Computed example of a mutant assay.
Amino acid sequence: MDALMAAFVAAALAQVGDRTAWLAAILSDRYGKPALVIAMAALALLAASGLAAALGTVIGPKLAPNAQQLMLALALLLQGGGAFFPAKTPDRLDRWRIGAVATAVLGLFILAFGDGVQFIVLTLAARTPVPALAAVGATIGSLVVIVPAALMGEAAWLKLPLKPLRIAIGVVFVLFGLVLALGALRLV
C-alpha cells in the first residue's frame, strides 16, 4: 500500500502545471468531449505507468535497498528541479488526423511516457513487493489533476496560478529527495 499512496501523491503533485494536464485541456476543447479525453488519459497513463512499473520489477531485485532509496531520491530531485522551469506548451496535435480516440490516447501516452512521473513509478515499483500498486497510484494521482483540466478547458486551466504552484511543489520534491538521498548515503 505504501507504493500506491506514494505514487498517488507524487503523481498528483507532479501533474500540477505539467504538460499532460495541459494537453488534456487542449484536446478537450478541440473535440468538445471531455469524458472521452479523460477516459483516454486514464488508459494512456495506466499503460505508461504499467510499463514503468514492469521495468521497476526487473531493476529492483538487482539493487541493494540503499541503492533503491538513492534512485527514488534522484527521481524526486529531478522532478523537483524540473518544476522550477516553466512548462513548454505541448504540441497541440493539430496535424493528427486519426480521430479523437487515437489522438487522445496516443498523444497523452507519448507525453506521459516521457514524463518524470514514470521515473518515480519505476523507482517505487522497484522497492515494493506489489509493483502494480505504483502504476495504479500514479494513474489515479495523475487523473486527480487531468480530470479538472479536461473539464475546465485550456483557457480556464491557464488562468490558475500554475507557476507558483509548480515552484512550491518543486521545493517539496527537492526537500524529500535530499532527505532520502542523505538517508541512503547514511549521512543522517
Rank of each mutant, 00 (worst) to 15 (best):
V105Q: 04
V174Q: 01
R95T: 13
R186I: 04
M40D: 03
A48K: 10
W22F: 15
L55K: 09
T103F: 04
T89R: 14
L122F: 05
A125G: 06
G60Q: 02
V144S: 07
L63T: 06
V9D: 01
M40K: 09
A75T: 01
P61R: 02
M40I: 08
A73R: 03
V171N: 01
V179Y: 13
L122I: 05
D115E: 07
L27N: 08
L158F: 03
L185T: 10
R166W: 03
T57K: 13
L175K: 00
A112N: 15
E154R: 14
L185F: 10
F84T: 02
P61C: 03
A75L: 06
A134Q: 11
L178H: 02
A53S: 07
A134N: 12
S49W: 05
L74A: 15
G107T: 08
V130F: 14
D18A: 14
F176H: 00
A12Q: 04
A83K: 14
A42M: 10
I120P: 00
R92I: 06
V121C: 00
S142V: 02
V188C: 03
P164S: 10
L178W: 07
D2K: 11
A39D: 08
F173P: 01
L178A: 13
T103L: 08
V144P: 06
T139L: 04
V188I: 14
A67H: 13
A54P: 04
V144L: 12
V105C: 03
V172S: 02
I110R: 07
L93K: 07
P34V: 08
L133A: 11
V172C: 02
A149N: 05
G116I: 01
P164Q: 10
L106Q: 05
L46G: 02
A53P: 02
Q68N: 11
I110S: 12
L55E: 11
T139D: 06
K33A: 13
V179I: 15
L70P: 03
P161I: 07
P86E: 15
L27F: 11
A156F: 05
A12S: 12
A6Y: 10
S142H: 02
D29S: 09
A54Q: 08
V171G: 04
K33C: 07
A54W: 13
Q69L: 15
P90W: 05
T20A: 14
